[in-house]
């Protein structure tokens, strides 16, 4: 009994510094910003208490919902794009031959680049006059699908998703590879002895064994997508006319371009609430897993 309390005490002391830092830099600011949301504040001079007006405006603001819709598109692209692609790559690249290590490194490479660099590179790929993409389409006789990729609202959001997926596949692939290497070989061997084919083995043996990892990756994917900002900010700035705005870029613009600090805080609080709902929702859905 005394040992267990001592261990608990030790855990508590061990956790304390991280907990303090975390609450000071994450938890407290969340409440702080929720509090600012009740004010009409231009960032200068005195703030005026206006109750729930900002929050009501946020939920009635069409641009906020455009941003939310775009975020959902990115979430979908990440969960149904990044996760399967990362999984396939992980399955193909579990072994560590020189060639496979090279491919792995090159898939991971965009992660090491600053997202500003990635944004500028893709901005040039999509450039309306000198862009590589339109040039390639021209050269291969596919002129009819040439587009002004980042200015045309009907395609711009999808054009942005490609670099987002490309950029963040690396870490998910590494997580999957780690999980695959941790599965016990005995079960695999047993399945083989029982004459299980490779497809069936994948769905009934391998995937169930790493299901927990998949869940974690999906949660990471959702929360990462809700925070999508840097690439979009560099590539389009949320424009033209808010068509590629996401929640974070709208929050940034409202706060630091338009100087409505109160309204920006209300938006960020709304983002937190929506994110929590989504994460909890996805957790609930995945509870009923197929193990």
């Amino acid at each position: 009994m005394t040992t267990s309390t001592r261990i608990k005490g030790f855990i508590l002391i061990g956790l304390l510094p991280a907990l303090l830092l975390y609450s000071f830099f994450v938890i407290v600011p969340i409440f702080w910003s929720a509090y600012y949301g009740f004010f009409d504040w231009k960032g200068l001079g005195s703030a005026k208490f206006i109750g729930l007006t900002n929050y009501v405006e946020v939920f009635n603001d069409p641009i906020f919902w455009t941003g939310f819709k775009n975020n959902m598109l990115i979430v979908a692209a990440s969960v149904f794009g990044q996760v399967p692609i990362a999984m396939i790559l992980a399955l193909l690249l579990t072994r560590a031959s020189l060639f496979q290590r090279m491919i792995r490194a090159s898939i991971f490479m965009p992660m090491v680049l600053s997202s500003v660099v990635v944004g500028i590179i893709w901005g040039y790929i999509y450039h309306p006059q000198i862009g590589v993409l339109n040039f390639v389409l021209d050269a291969t006789g596919l002129e009819m699908i040439k587009k002004v990729w980042l200015s045309d609202p009907s395609v711009s959001m999808y054009a942005i998703m490609v670099p987002i997926i490309w950029n963040y596949i690396g870490p998910y692939m590494i997580i999957f590879i780690a999980a695959l290497q941790n599965t016990s070989p005995e079960i695999n061997d047993a399945a083989s002895l029982d004459g299980v084919g490779p497809v069936r083995k994948l769905f009934q043996v391998t995937l169930p064994m790493i299901w927990d990892t998949i869940k974690v990756v999906i949660v990471l994917c959702i929360s990462g997508s809700l925070k999508a900002f840097d690439l979009i900010y560099v590539m389009t700035g949320g424009g033209p006319a808010h068509t590629t705005e996401v929640l974070a870029s709208y929050m940034y613009n409202s706060t630091f371009n338009v100087y409505r600090f109160g309204y920006g805080s209300a938006i960020s609080t709304a983002i937190i609430i929506l994110s929590l709902i989504l994460i909890l929702g996805s957790q609930y859905l995945m509870k009923r897993d197929y193990r």
Binding site: Y126, Q129, A241
Partner: peptide, 21 residues
């Protein structure tokens, strides 16, 4: 205006003009 004017910036526009495009 040229195609995609909403996705290039002020500097690129000045370059276009300076290059006689």
């Amino acid at each position: 205006f040229q195609d995609g004017f909403n996705s290039i910036d002020n500097t690129q526009m000045e370059q276009m003009f300076a290059q006689g495009k």
